[in-house]
């Protein structure tokens, strides 16, 4: 199976960003998940912060983020993230986290504090969060929604049938859909987003069913990408999708009613997040027809 080729080009902005996040002690999912887009994103001064440490309590079988017993929460982390956003001069920030099943609220309050701190220190900044499912705790979810993110992402990751194989046993396909649906109920103008990794063994029809389920949950932005096995410990790649297949799925997704679709082998949830948000806002307002993205 032919692998994707990545040109390793580390420019000055990449190295500066690396210094800033290291000196502030903030983890990034770009590093934690060996993201293939790190050269492009960091090279243009953009990173996705990963709060609440670098160790996840869940054992999803597609993910390279460290698993185990996590570190205690750093109460100053919200301010460190806010400071990093300021130092990097970002007007759009993406924040995700590890899962923290060890915490009573799954880390929802820490998420909310981080969103508020970033917005307080950086007036006008847009904040996109990629959140865990908080084990379906809708009060925890509400805390995050009312703290004022501009985009709330939560990934179903795969189709219904493969969810028990691909994701940790505490995750659930319907639980994730409930999180996305409820977020819209808490704030109907909140833009929501979700990702599906392709190539884990799903059928074409199952992908379309999953897209339909996401639309039924009110999701605005869809990301479709190719699963790339990070190490022999994760699930093997069952299939590599052709670029034309991504295009076809993108067209189907637009017909299903998504406001914006990113369908590309290397796309990841936070990839070109600012552009996706701006396009989605325009289309929701009815100012621009859907056209090929990415």
């Amino acid at each position: 199976m032919e692998k994707v080729r990545l040109r390793v080009s580390l420019n000055q902005r990449y190295l500066e960003l690396s210094k800033i996040v290291s000196s502030l002690g903030i983890a990034t999912v770009c590093e934690g998940a060996l993201c293939p887009n790190i050269f492009e994103c960091w090279g243009s001064g953009v990173a996705t912060f990963m709060i609440m440490g670098d160790t996840c309590t869940r054992g999803c079988r597609f993910c390279y983020v460290k698993k185990g017993v996590p570190q205690p929460i750093d109460p100053l982390e919200p301010y460190k993230v806010a400071e990093a956003v300021k130092k990097l001069g970002l007007d759009y920030v993406t924040i995700t986290s590890v899962d923290r099943d060890d915490l009573p609220d799954g880390g929802a309050e820490h998420f909310a504090r981080t969103i508020r701190a970033v917005k307080d220190l950086n007036p006008g900044v847009r904040v996109e969060v990629l959140i865990p499912d908080f084990r379906g705790d809708l009060d925890a979810l509400k805390r995050v929604v009312v703290s004022g993110p501009d985009v709330l992402a939560h990934n179903i990751e795969t189709v219904r049938r493969l969810t028990p194989l691909v994701r940790d046993w505490r995750s659930g396909y319907d639980q994730s859909l409930r999180v996305l649906r409820q977020a819209k109920i808490y704030n109907p103008v909140l833009i929501t987003k979700s990702s599906i990794l392709l190539g884990l063994g799903e059928t074409w029809e199952e992908v379309i069913d999953a897209m339909r389920d996401l639309r039924d949950a009110g999701v605005d932005i869809l990301v479709l990408s190719q699963y790339m096995r990070p190490s022999p410990k994760q699930l093997p790649v069952a299939r590599v999708y052709k670029i034309e297949e991504f295009k076809e799925l993108e067209e189907i997704a637009y017909k299903l009613g998504f406001s914006y679709v990113i369908a590309h082998p290397l796309a990841r949830t936070s990839y070109k997040a600012r552009e996706a948000y701006l396009e989605a806002v325009k289309r929701i307002a009815g100012h621009a027809p859907p056209q090929g993205g990415f």
Binding site: V4, R5, R7, V8, S9, L34, P36, P230, S231
Partner: peptide, 16 residues
């Protein structure tokens, strides 16, 4: 200039 290609599990890295 591309100088070395390194295969990791996830991809092929082209080192300049």
């Amino acid at each position: 200039d591309p100088l070395v290609e390194v295969e990791i599990e996830k991809a092929v890295l082209v080192i300049e």
